[in-house]
Design a protein around this nucleic acid. Sequence first.
RNA 1: GGCGCUAUGGUCAAGCGGUUAAGACGUCGCCCUCUCAAGGCGAAAUGGCGGGUUCGAUUCCCGCUAGCGCUACCA
Length: 490
Amino acid sequence: MCNEVRVRFAPSPTGPFHIGGARSALFNWLLARKTGGKLILRIEDTDLERSSRESEENIKAALKWLGMDWDEGVDVGGPYGPYRQTERLELYKKYTDQLLAEGKAYYCYCTDEELEEERQALVKEGKMPRYMGKCRDLTPEQIAAYEAEGRKPTVRFRVPADQQILVRDLVRGDVVFDSNGIGDFVIVKSDGIPTYNYAVVIDDASMHISHVIRAEEHLSNTPRQCLIYDALGFEKPVFGHISLILGKDHTKMSKRHGATSVDQYRQLGYLPAGIDNFLALLGWAPNSEQELFTIEELIQEFSMERVAKNPAVFDIDKLNWINQQYMRQLDAEAFFEIAKPHMIEAGYMTGEEEGEKLAWLKKVVATAKDHVAFGAQIPACVEMYFNDEFDFENEEAAEVLKAETVPTVIGMLLEELPKLEVLDGAAVKGLFKTIQKTTKLKGKDVFMPIRVALTGNQHGPELAEMVPLLGIERTGNRVKASLAKAGITL
RNA sequence: GGCGCUAUGGUCAAGCGGUUAAGACGUCGCCCUCUCAAGGCGAAAUGGCGGGUUCGAUUCCCGCUAGCGCUACCA
């Protein structure tokens, strides 16, 4: 083949699309785009029990959402299809027959029970539990007997003894394995479906994959695959095993660590650009101090040479920070679209609004823009615009209203507010300044009582931003209600 | 148990024999400010442990330890 870079992403459609899978996909995609090569999307669905079309669709949707596309593979086709393993059974069979004929593989009639027994016995002796080759040299008579019993055989690969297997790995360097540590492994299950370690070789070879970039968990399986490459006379690709993504407790990411699937992050209102940026920085570092990268910049900067060997802990705080940077870059319209599903879920809008009401919602949502890391945080951030009935957050807040000067301040506010010609931030700010000047009070003594009376809280967005959005009437009502609750009379 | 990979601050990490050991997230402090957030400034690591090689090691080698992975008719 030529020197074209051909990489692949080959997920198993067996559940939610994991964030670690997304990172593998991203590295492959970046490498393909960087080099002008091709990315192939292949579906490894040989686990009939757990694979589902729904899961495959979910993976493809997630990849697209993250901004990744593929040049060959399911849906788009290509010269080396089909791209779903269950649709390539004939191809595998052809090679299996060849291996069988050459004596490089053999039928194994052992049952699960027999295998388990053998394993237990070995463990008891303190030996390595592995298949000892019981069916390696069955006579035709024995085979006939098993067949007569109705036993369905698996096909095992005959692992040669005393062989040093070299795996050339882009990120780990050369790794050597001893074939004596590998038992004859199953390449075709009793139902005729090939196993992962077998199908992956035939597929990668027949699809002319030049670089196999995948998660580190596959490194120990690679010598098995190399054996098959050799047995079939295939040329081996270059491997690149990228480290695993760990949870906060340094164990493999699982549900216990919070959201682990791409879809969950999408639903929480994270941005694809944020996820991509974060994932790229997990196990890869640029040759600069830059932290924020557009997808184009990632393509520009990416290189396998700068991929780290050590496993990386998934740090949600960093993801949040990165995503927040992208949230802030959004224009008002895009931000509102992100907010919408969460606002609807919170019951703050229906999605049917139009005209003035919609315009008001947009303004309200816009106030959250610089303050949230992801979409799901938006409702809590604008909660005070929707809840006129509130309690003081604590005793301290209630205490603020007991100050001597409060009636004067609030009184002035209630009197002057309706007189404003235009109700906007500048006007409200001006009014506050006037109150401050006439009462000769410190800013805090003016703002804090108003804030507490208006929201019940001592914290929150800028008052000058809130009042215009609340309007004169609601501002008045809320303030009066709070004073009454605190037992203050004007 | 065997084999393999990995090991720089809480986290992501730069560094590829001689550096004041970058930068970012997070944390803490200060400034700004009605508050929170944002923003600005600043603080905190002697490099898992023990040997070796070298004039000199975080950087190279070995051992130990730890974490993870593989050892499936799961991928």
